[in-house]
Design a binder for these strands. Structure first.
Lengths: 210, 210
DNA sequence: GTCTATAGATTGATAGAC
DNA sequence: GTCTATCAATCTATAGAC
């Protein structure tokens, strides 16, 4: 087995188990056992459990953030050219569509999306801090774009409504993944396209309310 | 110290720490240490950590569910009398207002509300199963009432939109509590009335969309 | 009912042979 | 790079004196 294989296997398995059982609920022994590698390999390749977590997160979130950023910037650029404010629906779509589509880019990505959804709300400081670091800048980009789109709404209102939107999104993201999570069986077909078609009209109406 | 005091202290402290650090992240030593009681007292009074969790949850959720149920039933009864369908805004308010107002009924309740918000999405089977058992019947009541209010929407759409609504609600609930959770500092004043005023228009518009 | 002491299991991390 | 063996810490739970 090539060294890269071992490293990769650990990351993929960790991603899967973190999504299913949480960071705290996943022991290094569970990861290495399922991955079929030696326990000591984790600390050899990653140094520590925390470092493994960070690597797992970084691997997926950097490319994802790049796509989201690009789409938001494109949207504002187009609007500037036409001298119009961007439509709030388009702003929300630019942020959410890549996020949910991303889960179909690979089976592992599905787990990762579920992991984000659960972690952002979770009580685990270690996990949330890592995610926060990567997601906060994206949220501010989204906030700015939303303010452009809704110039008549007070910023506090926009902030709260984006907060609700994130809640709806995260709660939806944690339904994805191969892992058997709570109420998943109630939703027969969870695919990105269907999720997008359901969530976009809801949050668009919510952002525009009154 | 009276025996009831010890029991009460354990429950209050557990509620606080469960909300802040999660069920898994809270050890019995942390609870008894902060409560100023002996470690063995937990197993004497409650039998096990799981049983303590269940007692902590049951204590708050039974009265809360009773209020929510009463308000939903009252609403449907009134609508029946007037031979009108209940307004979806009133339905959502009947469910959400008691939930968020509840957090101001006592300092402990605040922690509890935060705990619900975090647990429902969390990866911990032990916690989610207990909550599910209590919350599922309430969700079905809400679902029925929402279907009455929106007779022109397909049930699948209503189901998904209630899912998003729960996501927004849970994400908001976890901001409450005395505990210092992530982005709390961004929200200067978190009080039930303000939260209600922000969330009701958002989710009402979302449920009605298109 | 409350305490000390400890059993019994699991954890992340590491030392050292190969 | 991979393995075995193990350390030191932590956990829930319990036995038994008072």
């Amino acid at each position: 087995m090539k060294p890269t294989d071992t490293k990769q296997k650990i990351m993929d398995t960790a991603e899967h188990l973190f999504a299913r059982d949480g960071y705290r609920g996943t022991s290094l022994r569970a990861i290495t056992g399922k991955a079929g590698v030696n326990l000591a390999a984790v600390n050899y390749h990653f140094g520590s459990k925390t470092s493994l977590l960070e690597t797992v997160i970084r691997r997926r979130i950097l490319p994802l953030n790049q796509i989201r950023k690009k789409r938001l910037e494109q949207l504002r650029e187009n609007a500037r050219k036409k001298k119009k404010t961007p439509d709030i629906k388009d702003v929300l779509t630019a942020f959410i569509e890549p996020t949910l589509l991303f889960m179909e880019s690979s089976p592992g990505a599905k787990n990762f999306i579920a992991f984000i959804g659960r972690s952002f709300t979770g009580p685990d400081d270690t996990v949330r801090k890592v995610f926060m670091r990567f997601i906060k800048p994206m949220f501010y980009l989204l906030f700015e774009a939303a303010c452009d789109s809704l110039p008549n709404q007070p910023q506090e209102t926009i902030f709260w409504r984006l907060h609700f939107t994130m809640g709806a999104l995260f709660h939806t993201m944690q339904l994805s993944g191969n892992v058997d999570i709570g109420p998943k069986n109630l939703h027969a077909d969870i695919n990105a396209k269907s999720l997008i078609n359901h969530i976009i009209p809801y949050i668009t109406a919510g952002m525009k309310a009154r």
